[in-house]
Write a protein that binds this DNA or RNA. Structure first.
Lengths: 280, 280
DNA sequence: GCGCGGCGATACCGCGGGGGTATGAATGAC
DNA sequence: GTCATTCATACCCCCGCGGTATCGCCGCGC
């Protein structure tokens, strides 16, 4: 009897499950359609369960297929992570991959990187900046070894963490806004404001009335134009352009900035980075 | 160029990394030694980094190898989990796998299972009991879909959770013990007592002076014999034999009993179980 | 110092299986 | 009924995995 599922089979399965079309999936994978059909059949036989309901006109996931799609994606991420992190750990010049949200905690990050670089035996740090909600994925599939996250916005489930800072939040709005003169606000004051909607991992957007934004630059522009206001951590104030003012929201959730990494990580330099971070 | 690492290669690598001996690793894998040597060489070439320092007399992990061992194990667990959970989700008679620590939260677990079984559309629940510290692994490699954990003893990192109950802790000791007559205790009173040492995931034991125990039955026996005392959640009182008494430790950490499952889980019945749990 | 034994690497072979092309079969559109 | 679309089957080829035999290296014992 054949043991273990191979990653090739998982990649094939995920492609078909995402396309729900053998021809297109095969094209995406760079192989012909018949071998793909056979591979899926073999996988189904091995697992003892049909993964797709297929007619010649439509392909749909079965319940087992739905489970395998979710689990398989996680497994493929883990395999990719193993490969990427090992590559990065190559003896000659190891690199530590760090991912942060573009435009967040800039000062803190700069201080952390400076302090770590000054450490004896420190390793090159490769900083990746990405949009909100993408960091988790980047950390999971190994493009980064450690992430700079913000609770409660980012999920820290499944990772070891080291807290770096805690801060309040403020409302960021154009200078001419009626609320711009206030010295402080409460969340109740924000009920009717057009808060922006952020993308979610599943491709959709958080619910609400406000405009859809993908990154902080876009948001900044919308605030300048008076089309949106945003509640963000106090530290965003630094490096803010003229024309945008910040008013503290005294009862908004406190934001914790923290480092997160997989608990089993053996990446060189990570322990030092965390130690430096804990002393900041 | 070849893409993706295959799980077969990872399994080969992990075997060699654990045995640090190509011949024994090959035997464990059920293949001959030469193909194993070649497979590792190919993997090293693909990753661009040597994974082992080898002489004819000794094999040792390089730094890249150390990283790949940790990451590769996690990846293999994820692949196994995908396979197991898909098998369990087979259309005809899906099964929900639940893992709990043997001897913990028995009443709560029974109540939960009864309530869930009474739910319309509920699915068979396959309960696995295991030693302390093993649940995490069981959940990670897919032998279970959901775990009953106890914070702060078990790490809930990386999982979605639903809290079920919170309780204090008590000292469990033989009826004849000097402290047995007290109505309450503080942690300071326990300084010199022989608290048991539990196994850790890495195969070692937690540090300390007390006896090493593997499960609750063994601990119970040691307490009866007067060789150990233990600080455990209050709920352990139920079903306790004669001869063991419990004294509340008023300032011990509160223990939270909770359900934990992978955030991406699509396993049938899980959502219902969590819903039932939240109403308990 | 020489031979032996243990162990990983190399050389070579055979076969299974993954991938290709051609074609069939089912089904919905018109 | 005909046609187009799409997944399955048939058949072939060749790469690559695994096996056996052997080599090369090194440490140890006498």
């Amino acid at each position: 009897m054949n043991d273990g599922v191979e990653t090739r089979e998982l990649r094939y399965f995920v492609a078909v499950a995402e396309e729900l079309h053998f021809g297109r999936a095969a094209e995406r994978l760079g192989i012909a359609q018949p071998p793909l059909s056979r591979a899926i059949r073999a996988l189904e036989r091995r697992l003892g369960a049909p993964l797709f309901d297929r007619t010649t006109r439509a392909v749909a996931l079965t319940e087992a297929g739905t489970v395998l799609l979710a689990e398989g994606r996680a497994a493929l991420d883990a395999v990719d992570a193993a490969e990427r992190r090992t590559r990065r750990a190559t003896g000659t010049r190891p690199v530590l991959g760090l991912v942060a949200k573009a435009g967040a905690s800039q000062e803190l990050l700069a201080k952390l990187l400076d302090a770590y670089a000054a450490e004896p035996g420190s390793v090159e740090v490769d900083v990746t900046l990405c949009g909100p909600g993408e960091q988790e994925r980047v950390l999971r599939d190994g493009r980064a070894d450690v992430a700079l996250l913000h609770r409660p916005f980012d999920a820290t489930d499944g990772y070891d963490t080291e807290e770096l800072a805690e801060e309040g939040q403020a409302l960021f709005l154009p200078a001419g806004h009626p609320l711009a003169g206030r010295t402080e606000l409460r969340t109740a004051d924000l009920a009717d404001l057009p808060l922006p909607r952020w993308p979610r991992p599943d491709g959709g957007f958080s619910p609400g009335e406000g405009p859809q934004v993908h990154d902080s630059a876009q948001l900044q522009q919308l605030v300048m134009l008076g089309r949106a206001v945003a509640v963000l951590p106090d530290s965003v104030r630094s490096g803010l352009p003229e024309g945008i003012v910040a008013v503290p929201v005294v009862d908004a959730a406190r934001v914790t900035t923290l480092l997160a990494w997989p608990p089993w990580s053996r990446v060189r330099g990570l322990a030092d980075l965390v130690r430096v971070a804990s002393r900041l």
